Computed example of a mutant assay.
Amino acid sequence: MERFVVISGCSGGGKSTLLAELGRRGHAIVEEPGRRIVRQELEEGGLALPWKDEQAFAHRAMTMALEDRAAATALNGWVFFDRGLVDAAAFLQHLTNEPVLAALAQAHRYCQTVFLTPPWPEIYANDPERRHGMEAAEAEYSRLLEAYPPLGYKVSILPKVSVSERANFIERALSEAKESHSSQH
């Protein structure tokens, strides 16, 4: 769905801050499944945590991403997702070598342009929900950089600029893509 926009990339690269800014600008936003799962599992003493049971975590993230996508159909305008189904499926495929990515990703499309936050060590910080280090975050980023293009997505790397400038960059890119698409029809 062309109005469902994924913001993905490196952990600690500024995705959540950027989504908060887009939300302040009146856009619908969907919080990252992984953070919600970690909070819930920590509160309930669960094991579906990336540092305890990665596969259970990845399966939960895929389920939540599908639920988020279905719920977002009721929203109007651009809907910005902090990660999405491709991220969860790419992680599960990395863990298990099960070819889940292509089939799921083709059945549940997002906007063709996916915005990725690159590794940005200067702003990277651990917190209770992000316990892995920069090296793991960079490996994750590399996997995502490789996962999206074969699925027909155009990857746009976000510049390392202020959150406001990043939001402007995304809004401008989406507006230009919409105008370009309209003029072709």
Score class of each variant (00 low, 15 high):
residue 166 R to E: 02
residue 26 G to D: 01
residue 149 P to D: 04
residue 180 S to K: 07
residue 88 A to D: 07
residue 185 H to V: 04
residue 125 A to D: 02
residue 164 S to E: 12
residue 167 A to G: 12
residue 81 F to A: 08
residue 17 T to P: 04
residue 52 K to C: 11
residue 3 R to I: 09
residue 85 L to K: 05
residue 58 A to G: 06
residue 42 L to D: 08
residue 56 A to E: 11
residue 27 H to N: 14
residue 72 A to Y: 02
residue 30 V to I: 15
residue 128 P to V: 03
residue 20 A to Y: 01
residue 107 A to I: 01
residue 39 R to E: 10
residue 167 A to W: 13
residue 125 A to I: 00
residue 101 L to Q: 00
residue 63 T to Y: 05
residue 36 R to C: 05
residue 162 S to F: 02
residue 136 A to H: 12
residue 73 T to V: 04
residue 173 A to T: 15
residue 93 Q to D: 07
residue 147 A to E: 03
residue 126 N to Q: 15
residue 105 A to L: 03
residue 119 P to A: 04
residue 110 Y to L: 07
residue 154 K to R: 14
residue 113 T to Q: 13
residue 111 C to G: 11
residue 52 K to I: 14
residue 161 V to R: 03
residue 120 W to L: 06
residue 109 R to P: 15
residue 168 N to K: 10
residue 107 A to Y: 00
residue 48 A to N: 12
residue 18 L to K: 12
residue 89 A to S: 14
residue 181 H to R: 14
residue 157 I to K: 13
residue 167 A to N: 12
residue 56 A to L: 14
residue 170 I to K: 09
residue 174 L to H: 12
residue 166 R to W: 06
residue 176 E to H: 00
residue 126 N to Y: 08
residue 129 E to R: 08
residue 30 V to R: 14
residue 36 R to A: 11
residue 7 I to T: 01
residue 163 V to C: 13
residue 170 I to P: 04
residue 7 I to R: 06
residue 110 Y to W: 11
residue 31 E to K: 15
residue 113 T to V: 06
residue 87 D to N: 03
residue 149 P to W: 10
residue 35 R to D: 12
residue 164 S to N: 09
residue 34 G to P: 07
residue 102 A to C: 03
residue 151 L to A: 06
residue 1 M to A: 08
residue 105 A to S: 15
residue 151 L to T: 10
residue 38 V to P: 00
residue 29 I to V: 15
residue 4 F to S: 10
residue 161 V to W: 00
residue 131 R to W: 04
residue 9 G to T: 09
residue 28 A to V: 08
residue 1 M to F: 02
residue 132 H to T: 13
residue 151 L to F: 09
residue 108 H to E: 05
residue 70 A to L: 11
residue 78 W to Q: 09
residue 131 R to M: 10
residue 184 Q to L: 10
residue 92 L to R: 15
residue 106 Q to G: 07
residue 58 A to S: 13
